[in-house]
Design a protein around this nucleic acid. Structure first.
Lengths: 198, 198
DNA sequence: GAAGTAAAGTGAACACCGTTCATTTTGTCA
DNA sequence: TGACAAAATGAACGGTGTTCACTTTACTTC
């Protein structure tokens, strides 16, 4: 071992911290190796000894975002008194996340690792977990449905909400005078998950 | 006037042709000024006399994609015998477009003009037209609904389908063994637009 | 024809990007 | 102290988009 100011792991975390801040403030584009290195107080070379590429650094930020999102949704579900309310709460919490932490959310869904680089298993596990959270509540709401149908419903609803957020944030909804949350509510009504009766 | 091989407008169209081909074959990333210029048989400088920036060139390709998509959806609606069928046909045509012309479709929705550059009015008009096509059919399917509710329904359904396509193409649906079209059908069922009865 | 002119076309050059790697600095231990 | 290897460096490379002083060309006028 040599040099001592920070351990390898500390430098790694420092890099993720700085990258995260860049992304939150200026989006994925507003982040570059030289700027991050300078902000860390190290040279670019050091950054590259800890991350093979900038893509992998962005990925680590996305990992944090994913875990934070999962936590939010889980707590939304737990606070609800019954499954329909849980579904609505999770959906709304998701919309809030997209609207409030826009840059973080957009990076989470727009960034792609270069071809050939596979996502770590843990990442995929946590992403699948988001669907599972919804599936649990749907299973409770519709106990008679087959698992496969529950899976389909979960994906249709989740992707639907996601699509509304995507288009809304890109101003591609042509929604003069329409409230995003009203559009989401419209979708929720279609899934019979709004209005109260258990 | 001077020089004659091509008029300014011909060069413009030539550039869009080449850019379109690049995008179709390799996606938005697989396109760059030098390559396009070489393929056109001109120098980069000439390209920049016709397009202020590469972003505006991509935009022109997107304009073409948008018009093509609009045409497809319009014909899908016209071929249908009643409004529920029209809605289903349009949605499925949209999914086909996303799945078959993936690079074109992704560029259409992922590309953003730099801040400060506004979308031309004609573009916005055609994009709004996509929603209007769906609204027409929804209006026919649900004649008692208010216009505002129709607008909400159109956006919820459209964005929903869009979200499914987005996540499916990015492999972010965690859909082991699930068919994308089945997920879309699930969404359609929720909107009561599948199954036949008028 | 020749000279003049302005449009059309050029491509080297600039600034910035991710990435690499020969080189230097530094802490540790014999 | 000297030797060694890990840690850290930053100039350099190849790739972007973009610019603009310059050259080439076609047309007009004499």
């Amino acid at each position: 071992m040599a040099r001592g100011k920070h351990t390898r792991e500390e430098i790694r975390q420092l890099a993720i911290d700085v990258a995260e801040q860049c992304i939150v403030e200026h989006g994925m584009q507003g982040m570059n190796a030289r700027h991050i290195a300078k902000e860390m107080g190290y040279a670019v070379g050091t950054l590259y000894q800890v991350f093979k590429s900038m893509d992998l650094l962005i990925f680590e930020v996305n990992m944090r975002s994913l875990l934070a999102l999962e936590k939010k949704l889980r707590s939304a579900a737990q606070d609800a008194t019954h499954c329909h309310a849980a579904i609505e709460a999770m959906v709304m919490r998701y919309v809030d996340y997209a609207l409030q932490e826009t840059n973080r959310w957009q990076t989470l869904f727009e960034h792609r690792l270069p071809e050939g680089v596979e996502l770590p298993e843990t990442y995929q596990k946590h992403r699948a977990q988001l669907f599972r959270l919804l599936e649990e509540q749907l299973k409770c709401a519709y106990p008679d449905k087959f698992d496969k149908d529950i899976a389909l419903e979960a994906r249709a609803l989740w992707a639907g909400v996601h699509g509304i957020c995507t288009l809304a944030l890109l101003n591609k909804l042509d929604d003069d005078g329409l409230n995003i949350k009203d559009i989401v509510q419209t979708l929720l009504v279609r899934f019979n998950t709004v209005g109260g009766e258990v």
